[in-house]
Design a protein around this nucleic acid. Structure first.
Lengths: 155, 155
DNA sequence: CAGAATCCTTCGTGATACTG
DNA sequence: CAGTATCACGAAGGATTCTG
């Protein structure tokens, strides 16, 4: 998957206490100092890690689908629009490898396989909802900014 | 950029009230019903939108860098490891287009340009910190899951 | 049904060179 | 300094076929 580059982008300790709105900036500032001081020395890169895991085309849609209840392979395929079998299998495999979902095979014929979120996977839902909520809240402003920008570029 | 596919993945209304930990699942369940009912009829796809915007290699690193203070072009390039001028310019342009950062040109010679987060951009920091915190908190378990999975695959 | 394997196309990204 | 333009490559993703 993606790399963090030769130099590592390093941010740690953000979770020390809870974070009231607008404290985020201050928290990042604190962490940024840590990152700057050892940027080139240590491994581990949460920012890149989480983005490599969730940034692809299907992962979050599958996680959201599984957030409701366990699904079978073909159920997910019906639930997630336009995903191919190839990408579904691959994404499920990656999610299982990261410990976010559990795979359970029922030895029926034809075989059926159930996928469900692990506790780790469910713990991701909270921050994920935060992001989605932000996206919904700011859909309008972003769309406006885009049309304004495009109009300005067109002279 | 990326598309939502012919059929739209639609989730709305997540931000009605605040969300104590572990309520995320219930909130998603509610939204999922809405999504299912009009998945094929309406446009707008916050999940895809935010992922298309943040899922690339450099966007979040730049946002985090700018979260501390305004930066000039070359400052960002020094702060973000291994980014090329091409990708820096392109990512900054996309961020400006979405209204997340503001660009200000000082007519000096040689010219200098300052980038800063807009209010919209700063509002992204909070959910972003949530994701990073999750990533840090679960770096260990994920790494363990991977090695366990790889070992199991290797028979 | 639940995949694996193969091929093929498109996109994101990097390297390099040029400009105001 | 702050970009743009062009080329080239590798990886992500899609379509298809095969299997247990």
């Amino acid at each position: 998957m993606g790399s963090c580059g030769r130099r590592q982008f390093f941010v740690t300790g953000l979770l020390a206490d809870n974070h009231p709105p607008a404290e985020a900036k201050a928290r990042l500032a604190e962490r940024f100092r840590v990152w700057s001081s050892r940027a080139f020395d240590l491994a581990g890169c949460p920012v890149r890690g989480v983005l490599d895991a969730l940034g692809d085309k299907w992962t979050t849609l599958i996680v959201i689908t599984l957030s409701q209840r366990p699904h079978r392979f073909s159920e997910i395929q019906r639930a997630v629009p336009d995903i191919s079998k190839r990408m579904l299998a691959q994404t499920l495999r990656d999610l299982e490898r990261d410990g976010l979902i559990a795979r359970r095979v029922f030895p029926t014929k034809p075989p059926s396989v159930e996928y469900r979120l692990t506790d780790l996977g469910e713990s991701l839902l909270d921050p994920l909802v935060g992001l989605i909520a932000w996206a919904e809240r700011n859909q309008g402003p972003i769309a406006e900014a885009r049309t304004a920008f495009d109009a300005a570029v067109a002279d």
